[in-house]
Nucleic acid binder design. Sequence first.
RNA 1: GGCGGCAUAGCCAAGUGGUAAGGCGACGGUCUGCAAAACCGUUAUUCACCGGUUCAAAUCCGGUUGCCGCCUCCA
Length: 477
Amino acid sequence: MTISVYNTPFRKKQEFTPLTGNRVNMYACGVTVYDMSHIGHARSMIIFDVISRFIRSKGYDLTFVRNFTDVDDKIIARANELGTSYKEISERYIDEFQADMRTLKVQKADVEPKATEYMPQIIDMILRLEEKGFAYRADDGSVYYSVTKFRGYGSLSGRRTEEMLAGARVDIGELKRDPLDFALWKRSKEGEPWWESPWSRGRPGWHIECSAMSTSILGPTIDIHGGGRDLVFPHHENEIAQSEGTYGVPFVRYWVHNGFVTIDGEKMSKSLGNFLTIRDLVKDVHPEVLRLLLISQHYRSPINFSRDSLQASTQAMVRFYEVLDRVNRCPATAPENRLTPLTGTFLEDFDQALSDDFNTPRAIALLHDLTTVLNRTLDDSPAVTAADRDGVKGAFGKASEVLGILEEEPAGFLESVRRSGMSATGLGASEIEELISQRAAARKARDFGKADGIRDLLLSKGIQLKDTPEGTLWETL
RNA sequence: GGCGGCAUAGCCAAGUGGUAAGGCGACGGUCUGCAAAACCGUUAUUCACCGGUUCAAAUCCGGUUGCCGCCUCCA
């Protein structure tokens, strides 16, 4: 099944074919490291994580690059605020970011370049742009990109240069010729970090680093370039102008942009101050629940974060793990395979769903369908074959390989969900288990008053019992 | 103001020409000593509104209304 991808500049899905045989080059814009990452970053990282996992699972030879912007105005501002160096700030928040990604099971990219490690390449690219007449020097030693020199500027975002020029604001004190021109090289002020260059002691503008890192690692034309919707203009538009201006070949074949996480319907961002950090969230929420939540809506749509959506995702994860656990606990005494035909169908449908522009919501719906049909079969007769068990493992294993959920031992996951609610119950696991076995004994003796008394006692402490053919389970409410 | 996107049941949400996935919730049933869980069934003759194209439209085109994003740092 070939993959179709929604390509931003064309505003429609297109069949995906790599530029070179089986090789796929992908670049995703990473984060500017000046603060803790929030759930909006998590969404973007998880989406490109799933995309890269899926592309690999289809057998492509993928090289995935995700950068760090480790020098920029905000980092410098933060450093000054805290009386430290930009380097300390960026290194610290890169470490924090990496820790968050490990928690969220976001795989490391093949190359994770930092802007400051690519100064020669950045400077070289600006020199070439100068030679070709796309860049000009300002009086202060900064260098700007002349947007009107690049035909096709605005094609990604669907804007016309003339219209933008007409409506543009002009900042006082800027040394640009046109308001749309953007800095390739900025002369550093007193006390700011700088690098030696042909123009001035300064630092690169934000956009040039991605062009330089992308082309020097992956070549002048790459297959997939992605990032948040907010990067379409001007960031990605400027990257195109820079890279195509330098090399004269198409920069990116498929542009992929993800929608925002909103809170109460408003975009979450650092500047609005309405953001939830990943670190805070995973204190109470299992990382897989967070992953499921963030991929349960299509990547291009905005997703609203709420207590309700968190609750729904938790329930869904518990449902998946319970059926897995159920299959594990079933005796392997069935005379014939009943689950393997179901899991076989699932695998085909799952691939089809994700091949259609990475439709994770549909893939998750398929997991629900599979869960239902597995439960139904086991309700009918609670026995499996060894092949059934492997089939179920294979099906959920595929989901775990691609979506990065369901990677834990079912019993362990259910245990950790229980534990997250257990402090409120005032009981320990062993006490609960003891009460459950007392109840079982009472039921066996048909002393239902006592049995129900125990059940009510546990319920009053927030513990719900579930009697299954394979035994009694419990969960915290 | 310019550009772009979205509007599907009580809620969340798939679905880009062929007659409305999935989840949560609610209600009825099976199971159960009774419950819970699990399972079965019901819950949108209809996809913001108005026109148009078509044998056929939630899906395409035009218009209206509402919401959101970008245009300044932003995943």
